[in-house]
Design a protein around this nucleic acid. Structure first.
Lengths: 151, 151
DNA sequence: CCTTGACTTAGAGCTAACTCTAAGTCGTAT
DNA sequence: ATACGACTTAGAGTTAGCTCTAAGTCAAGG
């Protein structure tokens, strides 16, 4: 049972244009064709596309994804490389999440800042910089000694 | 005490080129100039740049960051908009983190997959598809048996 | 005075990842 | 048979975000 490119576009959220682009870039060597050249996607190809999206959306450039796909096509002799690739990608994603969490803290601080300002009717409520100075003091103190609060 | 563009590039990790580009795009209206037009960055400008990087790195396009900066320059009458902007950005970042965590699970599964394959010396250890089939059963429990009529 | 080096500008060039166009083929429905 | 719509291709165009170049200004050191 085969899917057309339009059906796969529907299923994956990618456009048919993008799928052809990926194919042209060598990301879809596993997709079969009919006698007249029509792409015939199978269930398993949807799994391939999920892996491709995972790598791409976690920051891997298309060219490097192609390298991975090529390794897959080469079989067992590239197992080690592929294993390393995912270990490396895990590191990347861990770092991305850590960075986003830092930014989230900054955003939460800003939300609190604007809530205070809205209540006061003016941003000037912050210009004495009491808050900022105190926050700094807290952070500096926290950096020195780790609070033993766990569980 | 002022910093040159090169010193700020050093401190922020952005290039001097990029800082001029941001300025040209209207992101740095708060940066003062000397009589001869040299940018004079102050401590507070480093904080501005940290906020700009936070918004940009969490997915906000430069043009929308400019809108935010313009709001800041307009003073208290834009407090509500700025508050909303950060609430919205928080949603975005929460969603990004959630998506990355999903991808991380997929990557961890792949790492385990390749570890098993490496131990066995071949990927064929997975071709019985016991694991995958069982996972599918879980996920598809309820949505199965489509007549699936296709060319 | 002249050189050096950091800065200035406008604007061109680059890269990644699409996004679209034009011209053409194919398979089915009227 | 012919029209329709979905597919095919090569290749051009677009966008964001830089990245760099060329030509010029300016202040300090030899």
């Amino acid at each position: 049972m085969y899917y057309t490119i339009a059906q796969i576009a529907e299923k994956t959220g990618l456009t048919a244009h993008t799928l052809r682009y990926y194919d042209k870039e060598g990301l879809l060597p596993f997709v079969e064709r009919s006698g007249s050249g029509i792409r015939q996607f199978k269930e398993i190809d949807i799994e391939w596309l999920a892996v491709i999206s995972c790598l791409k959306d976690t920051g891997m450039p298309v060219k490097q994804v192609k390298v991975f796909i090529d390794w897959c096509m080469l079989g067992d002799k590239t197992l080690r490389q592929r294993h390393n690739l995912f270990l490396e990608q895990k590191k990347q994603v861990d770092a991305q999440i850590a960075q986003l969490k830092k930014y989230l803290k900054k955003i939460n601080y800003k939300i609190a800042y604007y809530e205070t300002a809205l209540k006061a009717g003016t941003e000037k409520v912050h210009t004495s910089q009491k808050c900022r100075t105190q926050a700094k003091k807290k952070m500096l103190a926290g950096a020195k000694k780790k609070p033993a609060k766990r569980r």
